[in-house]
Structures are given as structure tokens and as C-alpha cells.
Amino acid sequence: MLIQDVMSRAVKSVSPETSLQEVASLMCLQRFSSIPVIDSQGILTGVIAERDILKFLFPDIKDLMESPSAINFQALEQDYRKIFSMTAAELMSKQVISVTPDYPLLKAVAVMARHNFRRIPVTQEGVLVGMVSMGDIHRATFIKSFSGSPQLTETA
């Protein structure tokens, strides 16, 4: 089975100029853990993940370990609000890992597991053509393995 057999083709994306407030709203409303960032030609230029945004809300682990009582969590929340004026381009990961539509499904799972991804962009010659999630892969492999729904029996 190939990625093209299970990928979602209707993909929500943002431009590099999209405000982080809009990105965060889209993530919350659509329950996305990451969103691809594409330019005007549809070229995948980056991915912005929840962790890219949320890292501003949490103290640095080194600071937390050295002096947890000295951290001003209220100030961190204020700083978090300030990032909403930033753009997707300012926080996105520019080193994007993607797969192609003809990529083997289980090989994609290995890539996703190695990088701890739940979703991965699908590109063809740099253009975003879809996304595939662990849920998509799970559904596809289940359906293929069982060719229909399992038999359920009713008990009294």
C-alpha cells in the first residue's frame, strides 16, 4: 500500500505571512497538531507545530531544574500573548521532512516514528499535495487486514 492510497488531499495550510494568532486558532478549532506552511505556488516551505508555539509558554528545562521557585509563570503567560503578533515564518520548522505519494505506507510509519510525528506532509516536486496521519495509516491497515468490520456477537 502507498501513501497516495490513504493520504488526505484536502489539506489546511497557511502562508508564511499568516499570524500566529490565526495559526493557533486553526490548530485549536480543527484539532491539528501541526500545519504545513506553503508559498503562493503551493511549495512547502515549512511546518508549524503546536510545540513550536507552546515552547514560549513553558520555562526552559535548565531554568526549571536549577531554580523552579524563581520562575515567573505569570510573566511567561504575558510573553505567550506577545507571540501572536509574529508570523508562521518566524516560528515554523524550515527543515521539513515529507514523503511522496508513491512512498510505501509502512516505510512512512518508520519515518514518522523516528521523528515522533503524528502527521507528515506529502509533496510532489516540492508542492504540497496532501497529508497523512497515523490515524489514516491505522484505518487503512485495519481495513486491508480485515476486509470489513469485525463480527460482533451480542451477549445477554
Rank of each mutant, 00 (worst) to 15 (best):
P121E: 02
G126D: 01
H138K: 12
F146G: 00
G126I: 03
L91W: 07
G126E: 04
S133K: 07
I143G: 02
R114N: 13
V132H: 12
L128K: 10
N116P: 09
F142T: 01
V96C: 02
H138W: 15
D136A: 00
M134R: 11
V122H: 02
E125F: 13
N116G: 13
E125N: 12
S133T: 13
G135F: 14
E125K: 14
R118E: 12
V127K: 15
S145T: 02
D102S: 13
M112F: 10
M112D: 10
D102G: 13
M92V: 06
A110G: 14
I120L: 02
M134H: 08
G135Y: 15
E125R: 15
H115L: 11
I120V: 06
V129I: 11
P101W: 00
V132N: 05
H138F: 14
I143R: 14
T141E: 11
G135R: 14
R118C: 02
V127I: 15
P121A: 05
P104Q: 03
T100Y: 06
V132K: 07
R139M: 03
N116T: 15
F142C: 01
S93P: 03
Y103N: 05
A140V: 00
L91N: 08
H115Q: 11
K94A: 15
A113L: 14
H115W: 15
D136I: 00
L128S: 07
H138C: 08
I137D: 00
F117V: 04
V99M: 05
M112T: 06
R139K: 13
I143S: 05
L128V: 04
R119I: 10
M92T: 05
S145W: 00
V111S: 06
L91F: 03
A110M: 12
T123A: 10
F142N: 03
Q95P: 07
V132F: 11
Q124L: 14
V99L: 05
M134W: 08
R139N: 05
H138V: 08
E125T: 11
I137Q: 01
A113P: 12
D136L: 00
P121F: 03
F146L: 10
I143D: 10
G135A: 14
V129F: 04
M92S: 03
D136Y: 01
R139S: 01
D102L: 10
K107R: 11
A110C: 12
D102I: 04
Q124N: 14
K144E: 12
Y103S: 12
M92Q: 07
T123D: 07
T123L: 07
V122A: 03
F117K: 03
V96Q: 08
